[in-house]
Amino acid sequence: MKILNIIIAVAAGLIVLLGYFFRIPAIDDLRGQLLNWAVTLSGVAGLIAILNLIFGVHWKRVKEKHERRGASLVIIISFAVTLVAGIFLGPSSPGFQKLVTHVQVPIESSLMALLAISLVVASLKILQRHRSWMGFVFFLCVVLFLILNSGVLAFTSEIPVLRDFLSAFHHAPVAGARGILLGIALGSLAAGIRVMIGSDRPYNG
């Protein structure tokens, strides 16, 4: 059974990859079909995982009279209301959208605002947290780019030497980000191929 799982997974991976490189109609069709199945399966997995969260975690807390059963009950009721509204009104109906935008968006915006403050505090504490050259360089960069992007140095656009010098500084983060992204791309390639050829299996069957 395990071997069959590996064969199916490897074959599906190879077909999708070949369909990406070779524009052969038969492979392309098969690839499209496999990707459609993957999207459907992912949706079903999402539904199962949400039901597991509701019954396996929150309902369990309510049943076992956990100290946070109040919060769990609110989650279960919210889930039921959203599910019923989604089924009867349809996810794209204005009523359902209103329900989502008037509840979820304000909550997430408030969380984002709180997070912004937390990150500012964390940035102020960075030298305390990282007492190394890396922490010091990061701190200097944060201060430098805050000043550069604040517009305080806008007058330098009329001084050719200074303008070129600061323009070079503006390119530094792009170069750094590209370096990191290249490393991540190579890591992703190796990790993806490891799974595709069956050397690494996050599925066990």
Binding site: I126, H130, I180, G187
Partner: peptide
């Protein structure tokens, strides 16, 4: 996330070290 980790976490790995 890497920038956030740098500011908020003591132990983190950068770039391809993740892999």
């Amino acid at each position: 996330a890497q920038a956030v980790f740098m500011a908020t976490s003591q132990d983190f790995v950068i770039g391809e070290e993740l892999y």
